[in-house]
Design a binder for these strands. Sequence first.
DNA 1: TCCCCTTGCGCGTTCCTACGC
DNA 2: CGCGTAGGAACGCGCAAGGGG
Lengths: 330, 330
Amino acid sequence: MARQAGVSVTTVSHALNDRGQVSAATREHVKRIAGELGYAPNRIASALRSQRSRLIGFVSDEIAATPFSGRVITGAQDAASELGLMLMVVDSARDDGLEERQIETLLAQQVDGVVYARMFHQLADVPATLGAHPTMLVDAVDRAGAQPSIVPDEVQIGRIATEHLIEAGHRQIAHLTLEQPGMARDGREAGFLATMRECGLTGPVIRVPGIGDAVAGRRAATELLRRHPQITAVLCFNDQMAMGVYQVAQAAGLRIPQQLSVVGVDDFWPISEGLDPVLTTVALPHYAMGRLAITRLEALITGQADAAPREARLACELVRRASVTAPPAP
Amino acid sequence: MARQAGVSVTTVSHALNDRGQVSAATREHVKRIAGELGYAPNRIASALRSQRSRLIGFVSDEIAATPFSGRVITGAQDAASELGLMLMVVDSARDDGLEERQIETLLAQQVDGVVYARMFHQLADVPATLGAHPTMLVDAVDRAGAQPSIVPDEVQIGRIATEHLIEAGHRQIAHLTLEQPGMARDGREAGFLATMRECGLTGPVIRVPGIGDAVAGRRAATELLRRHPQITAVLCFNDQMAMGVYQVAQAAGLRIPQQLSVVGVDDFWPISEGLDPVLTTVALPHYAMGRLAITRLEALITGQADAAPREARLACELVRRASVTAPPAP
DNA sequence: TCCCCTTGCGCGTTCCTACGC
DNA sequence: CGCGTAGGAACGCGCAAGGGG
C-alpha cells in the first residue's frame, strides 16, 4: 500500500489516522489509493502494537431464553460501533465453570473491558478472574461492591404502574407477584405498596411459587378471584403472569378491561401485543442499559470515569395499550 | 514467562502447544510455571503471526426480536468453543448499508470466516464484500448459488404436523397460514397438502395478510369458523397464530383440544408453554443449525469441505403437548 | 550422532526519532 | 527553524534453521 502510493509506511499511517505532520495533498493521495486498493488496516496488528484491542467482552448468563438480553446486546453494539469498538459475546448458560473459562478466553483475546450482564436483576458474585480489568455489570449489582453497575429502577416500575391504575380511577388494586425474593420482585412490590400508602389505599399482594410464567399468573389470578373478588385492577410481576390473568379472567367471564384492568411489566411483545386486548405494561430499559454499559466502560478504559456513579438506576416507561380503563360503576 | 521458567521463549511456545522437540520434564515444568503465573498466550500476537485469527464473524439481520437467533448463536458458540474459535456477533437490524459496513469491520478484524444468518427462511443476496471469504448461510439460501447454506426442512414440518393430526383420527383439517409467499410458508403448505393428498384427504388453506402474529391467527380462525365450521383440527403457520386461534376458540366456546385440535410451529416457549392447554408444536432446529454452521465453516476454512453439500436441510421435531386429541364423535 | 533447546526473523501496525529542504 | 517525510524499533508469538552437550 505504501509502495503503491509512493510514500513511506509511516506517512500512510499518519495520513489514514489523521495524525502527525502530513500535507493535505499527500493525505488526499494516500486516502484515494487506499480506496482504490480496498485497503483496510489490519486491526490485529494495530491491537498488538497499540496494546488496545478495541474489543469488549460481553458475558451473559443467557442470551436465548428471552429476547431481553438481545436488546441489551443491540444497545451495547450500537454504542460500540459509534466508538469504533467490537463486541465479543459469550453465553454461559448459567454454568459458572464455563463462564470462568469464557472470561479467560476473552482476556486472552486481549479485550479492553468486559460487560457482565445477568438475565434477571440480581446480586452477583463477579468472577475473580476479572480482577482489575475494567468491568461493568448490567442488570446485576456486585455483591463485593467493587465493580460499577447499571440496573433498572424496580421501585419506579411499581410506582408508575400503580399510579397509572390509580389515575384511571381504581381504588381496589392487587399486586400479583412471586414468592421467591429477588431485586425485581422486592423493588416492584415496594413501589406498589409505597404508592398505595401515599394515596391512602391498601391492596393485597398475592405471592405464588415458581417462576413468573403464565402458569403462575393463572394460579395467582385464581387465588385473587377467590379471596378478593372486589378487586378492579391488577399489577402483575411481568407480562407472562398477565397472560395467565387473561386466561383465568376469560374463563370466569370477566371482561378485560371493562371489569378488570391489567398491567404487566417487561413489554415482551409477543405477549404484550399478542394478548386481546393488547396489554398495558412497563417496558424495561434493556437497550439503554446496553448502550450505557459501553459508554461508561469506554470511559473507564480511557480513564475518565473516576467521577462516574457506582450504580446507575435507569427509569422505565409505561406503555399504554388497551388493558386499563376506569373501574366499573359500583 | 520464559525467564521465570528458565528457558527460551521458543521452548515455552513448543511446550505449551505440544509441538517441536521438548523433553517431557521441561514440558511439565513450563506448564506448571504457566499455571502459577496465570499466563495465557496473547491470541492477538498469535493471530498476527499465524495469519489465522480463530475469529468467526456472525452476521444476523436481527438478534433481539425473537429468541430464535439467540439459539442459533448459542449453537454456534458451543461448536466454536469446542473448536477453539471465538464468535464476533453483529446485528444489522435489517439495514443493508449498515450490514455492509459491519462486514467490512469484521474482515478488518481478520475473521477467518463468516456465518450469514437470517431471521426468517429466505432467498438472500449475500453482500459482495464477502466475496471469496469462507461463508455459511443459515436460514437462508444464496440467490446467486455461490455460498453453501443450512436451512430447516419446511416441507417436513408440514408433513409431520399433518401426519400427527391424521394419526390422532382427524379427517377435517385446515391449514392457517400467510398470504405473503416465502420459503417457510410455501414449504409448510406444500408439506400439508402433500400429506393430505397421500392420505386421500383434502382440507382448506386459509391465508391471511400481515405477519404471522396473534392478530393474524385471530383473523384466520374467525374466517375458518365462518366458512368451515366442520373442521376438527388446524395446523397453524406458527405458535403466535396458534395463540390467536386459542383466543377465538375460547370466545366462541370451542374447547381445545376436545372440540378443536391445534398444532403450531416454532416452539416459542413463552407461548407454547404459556397457552392453556400447552401447545403441540414443531420445534425449529435453531441450535443445530448454529452448531452445523460453525463445524462446516471450520471445515471450509481448513480446506476439507470440498465434498460438503451446498445445502443442508435439517429435520424438525414434533413436540407433543396437550392441544391435540381425537376428534369429537360426530 | 542424536536429542533438546536456542537464536533470529517476520507478521502489520504504531510511535519515537531523525533528516532534509 | 518549521514543516513534511522517512527510518527503525517494538508489540508477542510461531517457525526454520542452527548449535551445544
